[in-house]
């Protein structure tokens, strides 16, 4: 069975279980098991620290739990989940930014510095530099690069999540890749 068809079948099963009060919790647990890891890494690539990621992931699934009955099925379920996770991540980052009362540039370098505070995502040194390079990117470029580079998402899917034009996304991805390459090459 093709992966896309399997994915759609899973979504349909989850949504059916969520429709009835009796099977709601089972459906929600199935949704958690299916998407928690993907959403975790999506968030973590933005906020870097595990504790931050855990907080944002919990907030994301609480929003999903409360709002799943309002999901109309106009988009794919996982696109909707990514959108909520992205919004929660941005909200969290803005909150941290406000608390630190630093400028945007300082915030970018601040997030990059958190990579030193926690263990690197990958033990490999070059992966650590890659993560640091990503952390220096502007918010939108970082989101697009992560979704494309790590999650292999199509531009159409990313545009549905970020509600941005595909042309704009391509430009963002291109700029992000060039900046990261330059950053890493200057440090190794």
């Amino acid at each position: 069975m093709p992966a896309d068809t399997q994915h759609n079948d899973n979504e349909a099963e989850i949504l059916q279980l969520l429709q009835e009060e009796r099977t709601f919790e089972r459906g929600f647990r199935l949704l958690l098991q299916t998407y928690q890891e993907r959403l975790y890494w999506h968030i973590r690539k933005m906020v870097n620290l595990h504790d931050y990621t855990d907080e944002v992931l919990q907030n994301t699934f609480i929003k999903i739990y409360k709002g799943i009955k309002k999901f109309k099925g106009n988009s794919k379920l996982y696109t909707w989940l990514y959108r909520i996770a992205t919004n929660e991540t941005i909200t969290f980052m803005n909150k941290v930014k406000k608390q630190k009362t630093t400028s945007l540039d300082n915030e970018e370098s601040g997030l990059a510095n958190t990579l030193h505070a926690d263990s690197p995502l990958d033990g490999d040194e070059i992966q650590a530099v890659l993560e640091k390079a990503i952390a220096t990117l502007p918010e939108k470029q970082r989101l697009v690069f992560n979704m494309r580079y790590f999650d292999d998402m199509s531009y159409k899917e990313i545009s549905e999540i970020l509600e941005t034009s595909i042309g704009g996304l391509k430009a963002s991805y291109h700029h992000a890749a060039k900046k990261i390459e330059s950053y890493i090459k200057n440090r190794i």
Binding site: S119, L121, D122, G123, I184
Partner: peptide
Amino acid sequence: FLAKLKKEKKPQSG
């Protein structure tokens, strides 16, 4: 350069 780096990517940990 990044394409090569992606192929060598190790499973995420931490």
